[in-house]
Nucleic acid binder design. Sequence first.
DNA 1: CGGGCAACCTACGCAGTAGTATGTTGGCTC
DNA 2: GAGCCAACATACTACTGCGTAGGTTGCCCG
Lengths: 217, 217
Amino acid sequence: MSEATAISQGRPGPGDQGRSAVLDAAAKTFARRGYAGSSMDDIADELGSTKGRVYHYYRSKARVLEDILLLGARTLHEAVAPVASRPGLAPAARLEEMAVEHALVLMRQNDVQAVTLHTIHLVTGRASEPGEANPFRYIVEARDAYEELWRTVMADGVVAGAFAAPDPDLAVRAVLGALNWSTVWYRPSPHDTDDRTRRLAEGLASYAVRGVLRHDG
Amino acid sequence: MSEATAISQGRPGPGDQGRSAVLDAAAKTFARRGYAGSSMDDIADELGSTKGRVYHYYRSKARVLEDILLLGARTLHEAVAPVASRPGLAPAARLEEMAVEHALVLMRQNDVQAVTLHTIHLVTGRASEPGEANPFRYIVEARDAYEELWRTVMADGVVAGAFAAPDPDLAVRAVLGALNWSTVWYRPSPHDTDDRTRRLAEGLASYAVRGVLRHDG
DNA sequence: CGGGCAACCTACGCAGTAGTATGTTGGCTC
DNA sequence: GAGCCAACATACTACTGCGTAGGTTGCCCG
């Protein structure tokens, strides 16, 4: 009944051990070489097996990507949405907390999020083909819905006088940009304990968010 | 004697009209479909001609990319370096001015810069092959030198007490991230006059830089 | 203990793509 | 006006890479 079942169409569904191993390997491969630059054999090599294993769980390369994008979008939304709607938070604290959670997901789920952020724009511009629906459309919509979360919080904060953002939409893009760019320079290392990762996320979030705060003393 | 001549190796050099037309078309194509996702025929289609034209100016697809990356790196450096070393500027004004110039280049030279920023990391991780030199190595070094410019200005500002940046390197990454991410969401449109573009760049730069400024009143 | 199915592997067909080898054409020079 | 070369086009070749068809193996269930 889940859409994931609809995706796999008869093949083993999510929650499946083997399936998520394939997904992880694919995410790692795509993150390194890019989607178009990765072959199914590359993914299989990463798994230490052959293409047959990948095709056992996914009908095509595009379906693998779709699953990665979906997982990435979901994880981000589930981590940040609760903060966006948590009662009793001041706008500045809310924004900063959202930024920390966002950054944490990017760092902990690094490969998946890197693929999501770097590949979605290759998939966005397909609306030009008339009559043919874009199979990734709902993922683009999920991304838009997620960003809408940020725009709402930003707009509320401006109204409340907590933020100095003459152009709130641009401000959101600046904040998300500072955070998202971490997928370009950050790679998890064995040295990164949970504590270190969190401090890095907090530091980055602080720089990102302080740009829109109102400072008057 | 220029390295561009060394690149083309007997073929028409830069400054050549036809060559830059090919480069522009390639940048546009790479920006849309990604490097690996673009075929030489795609580039030729964008030009309204055939592969022969592309191969007349470039020996291979990788050389085309190399030229785009080189152009992107150079343009950015030439726009920002003068500001970084201009005498008589306060740290905050210097950083903001650099950010504006940086953003302006990303917007005006959109395709080339998008390709540069989204493709260089695919080319960075090639040091793993021992014995074989990475042909893109000097471009990675140019990128590093450019970022060093920012780190220097940031460090100076911290020493001067103008910036509140406990981790200056991270601060640079936050600032550049906010700016660089514009290559993901911004596409030039006919509506964008020079004036509009500049205001957008200034707005973005303001959010990006204010995150590291010291605010005490 | 035999049948069935999940979880793979092997071998192949075929489409697309980088690069090459060989024209062709228009302008410029001497 | 004959030759020459830049600036392309055309027609291939060789290879890579997606997807498929048909095995094989081991476990589980009755």
